[in-house]
Write a protein that binds this DNA or RNA. Sequence first.
DNA 1: AGCACGCCGACT
DNA 2: GTCGGCGTGCTC
Length: 738
Amino acid sequence: MDRDSRQKYDPVLFPDSDLKAVPVLVPMPVDRAFSYAVPEGESLVPGQIVQVPLGPRLVAGVVWDGDTDRVDPRKLRPIARIFDCPPLNEPMRRFIDWVSAYTLSPPGLVARMALRAPAAFDPEPLIEALRLVGEKPERMTAARQRVLDHAGDGLYWTRSGLAHAAGVSRGVVDGLATQGLFETVMLPPPPVVAAPDPDYAPTLLEDGQKAAADLLSAEVQDGKFCVTLLDGITGSGKTEVYFEAVAEAVRRGRQVLILLPEISLTVAFLDRFQARFGARPAEWHSELAPRTREKVWRQTATGEVKVVAGARSALFLPFADLGLIVVDEEHDPAYKQEDRVFYNARDMAVVRAHIAGIPVVLASATPSIESRVNCAQGRYGHVVLSSRYADAGLPDLKLVDMRRHPPARGGFLSPVLTKAIGETLKRGEQSLLFLNRRGYAPLTLCRVCGHRFQCPDCSSWLVEHRFRGQLQCHHCGHNEPVPQACPECGTLDHLVACGPGIERIAEEVDKHFPDARTIVLSSDMIGGTRRLRIELEAIAKGEADIVIGTQLVAKGHNFPMMTLVGVVDADLGLANGDPRAAERTYQLLSQVTGRAGRTGLESHGLIQTYQPQHPVMQAIVSGDPETFYQRETDERRRASLPPFGRLASVIVSAATRPEAEGHARALRNAAPTGTAIMVLGPAEAPLALIRGRHRFRLLVHGVRGSDMQGFLKQMLQAGPKPRGSLQVQLDIDPQSFL
DNA sequence: AGCACGCCGACT
DNA sequence: GTCGGCGTGCTC
């Protein structure tokens, strides 16, 4: 709505002085807070969580800072409910405003991320507890006696807890309660996790680790904003080192957030935490049960929960008194959210820490170029752990030049790799084959007419999934059954699969080693996360000889008997147009090869490549990434890419290409000098944004110092609007805005 | 973001 | 004759 139409209401009929209104952020993509009338006799403060009517429904909103809009009093509706819940504190509100401005997303949608626990805003209901006070029931039975034996300890029991402990049905306990044998009280529900004990089992640290841990602990003691990159090779005990900083914060009664890529939030991590602190951290991720989710949200807001280990969305939890943030695996691309609000949780963690005035630790064995440059420029502290734990030796890594050792016809494994697998099998040890491609084959074509199977919605190749009998689009999720005949020429049984996916590698392995027990792991596995967990456990117990997997095998899991890692196609992903392709490949290959060599047994990594001279391959086998990092940094500087320059993707939702091109034209006309704009096809749009429609990504590339935010904001407001809104993903180092 | 309204094509 | 596709507009 424009200003004129807001001001045309009669101020005499509806004098402002009669109305008390407050600004409220509602979960809607508008650029400001809406105004709501404050109920008679109530007073509200910014940050309070309220329920307000919005159109036909009731939604949760947050009372915001600042003045209310001048809005027609006839439109003003009253706040429906004020939740009995701690208000979002000032740093949290400033954080939401900052993220909103930086990511060019509506503040209401950012606030919504902080309110993602629907029923958590009311206090948790009290639970009924029973304490034995009576002597004996009128009639004694064996079951009743068991209940009395258990309840005789004078403690409070829940009805179901007592029944369970005594091994009787709830009816027995209820019967005794009716006879007045119990005193009942209403107690607050137990905390969602036990309190971590900072001195439960301190790890014995080696000298280098001790120095690093002391430094981080001192930062926590200082309680000021600072960023430290904890840079330690695989097996150097990074986790144990930052646990000491966590312990220090807990000792001081403050809260800690440990961010992890979702996939790394494993049982193994939680167990390690428990071993150190005697209790598990509260978890926060997408698969949390709704009830647990509410408890964690609520108890984080009240300050009861001290340590949260969570995926990127945990950054928006309303901590009462945050004292430290740790971002583990800081280089991981999973920290990027590309849905509605686009942000990189690692960078926003730095912002949140800055606003809260607390330290933040970024940990990685393969830090991002951004973080390393920030260290080099003195903005981040740099702590390097260079030695390894006693037993954990790195595997012996070798490149397999595929031009010299070609696979058999129709296969993808070189004789060098198959021989090594055979020897590993003979020793009774495990092998891991890594290929970052799901399905059977990435491209299917008709041998007769050359027809290639393409996605009708987004024009990328359809991937055959032979286990499921489907052709799938890995971009938008479109799928169809594999046809018998070519849809173009009608020829039967002449479709041919091109290139390998893990299913095809599994087939090849089966041919070579028919007696080996193989497991195929990928994110789209039938049976979901639960099945995945079971399979991982089976592997850890040695119930598989050969594991074939996509990138999910690269993360966090420990395979005790894994002594061979084979990378099937190390070149995959090097040439995909992403300016970070080489960096990502290096990080991924480091992680995957790091899966072996954790046992003290002699272990090997064989990396199949057609480009053995490529800097990534050289960096991997030399074990010295410095040359590679330097080269990548120089390249970034030369190309004005982050952190030296600025990069933004503007997602244009458009049903037709001409519309996207219209936007590109508009952008080019309005762009400051030194800004390049490319139109990328729908295949480059992020998966979450396609949903069966053509969407285009405009890559805007600006030099350092250009006002990218201002330019894009202007463009979003003034440019030709397609259906819906434009979404912007910024790759700008937030340090320059702090 | 949701949701209602409203206008045009293919069907019980 | 309706069902239902998505284009448009609105929400304090």
